[in-house]
């Protein structure tokens, strides 16, 4: 277990966000509340996964963490800075870096290494240090050999790793990834999730991974399930996946192994809740078979 007294890096209280729709005369003609009072507390070094459908409010929440959106209600502190304070906006963005869904639309330069250097350039980091940071960041995501390549020649997974490197080069305390794998094939997905886990474990970077793929959250310290702008479940992956029925109600998946265990249980097989891996299932089934 990790130390319980770690510092909070993100503290959100009663977060709300309302999208306003304007008519032709510039008056508000409709509004839509995407976040309806969300509390969030993330400690340094944690790996947090946020699950939910499109429209559940998870992307809105992610954008608030990076001060791209400012809460219309509630308070949000990122690394001690209030995101409403305009003078701190660059501090917030540096503390919580962000990786987006579409790999093509977040790479700015036509050369990999220059793209990774973009963030540090904006921060005014001296040239020599930029090179050092770029080298480290590309090595951390395993893309060093492609540093001279054009992003257009890379696979989706590789592009996302470049995007992650671009964020790491800014030395953030926390990375927020907003559905980074939604547009990737299975190979690309495991590439990206593997990279993120490694950064969390080896570099101690706090990770907030937003996704709708259940397999990707199994290794998280804590899973937050959102639906219709609210947090509906929170707990360890095992706790969350024990509630197969609740997840199905909001039409989220569970990994096939968890689903099979659930189906067996429904048929009367006394398996424990929240089986997450094939090893766990075969072991539990083995016990049952043995006692027959």
């Amino acid at each position: 277990m990790r130390k319980p007294d770690r510092k909070s890096i993100i503290e959100g209280h009663e977060l709300r966000y309302e999208y306003l729709h304007y008519d032709d005369e510039g008056k508000v003609d409709s509004s839509y509340e995407a976040l309806k009072g969300v509390d969030l507390d993330v400690k340094e070094g944690q790996f947090i996964a946020i699950l939910g459908h499109n429209g559940s409010g998870k992307s809105t929440l992610a954008r608030q963490l990076n001060a791209l959106l400012i809460p219309t209600g509630g308070t949000l502190f990122v690394d001690g800075s209030d995101t409403r304070d305009e003078s701190k906006v660059w501090l917030v963005r540096q503390a919580a870096g962000m990786v987006f869904q579409n790999p093509d639309n977040q790479i700015i330069s036509s050369v990999v290494e220059e793209d990774v250097g973009f963030g540090p350039e904006n921060m005014g980091v001296p040239t020599k240090e930029i090179w050092e940071r770029v080298r480290k960041a590309l090595t951390a995501v395993g893309m060093m050999e492609y540093r001279k390549s054009s992003p257009n020649r890379l696979s989706g997974g590789q592009k996302q790793r470049v995007a992650i490197a671009g964020v790491i080069a800014m030395r953030p305390k926390c990375i927020v990834l907003d559905e980074p794998t939604a547009m990737l094939d299975p190979g690309g997905r495991s590439e990206v999730v593997g990279t993120v886990r490694q950064l969390n474990r080896e570099e101690g970077v706090t990770v907030i991974l937003i996704t709708h793929y259940m397999e990707e959250v199994i290794h998280a310290d804590r899973v937050i399930v959102m639906d219709e702008g609210k947090v509906v479940m929170t707990g360890t992956p095992r706790e969350i996946f024990s509630r197969v029925e609740d997840l199905k109600k909001i039409r989220l998946d569970v990994p096939q192994v968890t689903e099979l265990a659930y189906m067996l249980k429904q048929s009367g097989v006394p398996l424990p809740d929240g089986i997450l891996t094939i090893g766990e299932l075969t072991e539990e089934l083995g016990k049952l078979k043995g006692r027959k």
Binding site: L260, L264, V269
Partner: peptide, 18 residues
């Protein structure tokens, strides 16, 4: 999944036994 369930149940000696 349903196929898998049925096979495992069969091996365990039918769900009813549990």
């Amino acid at each position: 999944l349903p196929e898998a369930r049925d096979q495992i149940l069969k091996e365990l000696g039918a769900g009813a036994a549990f």
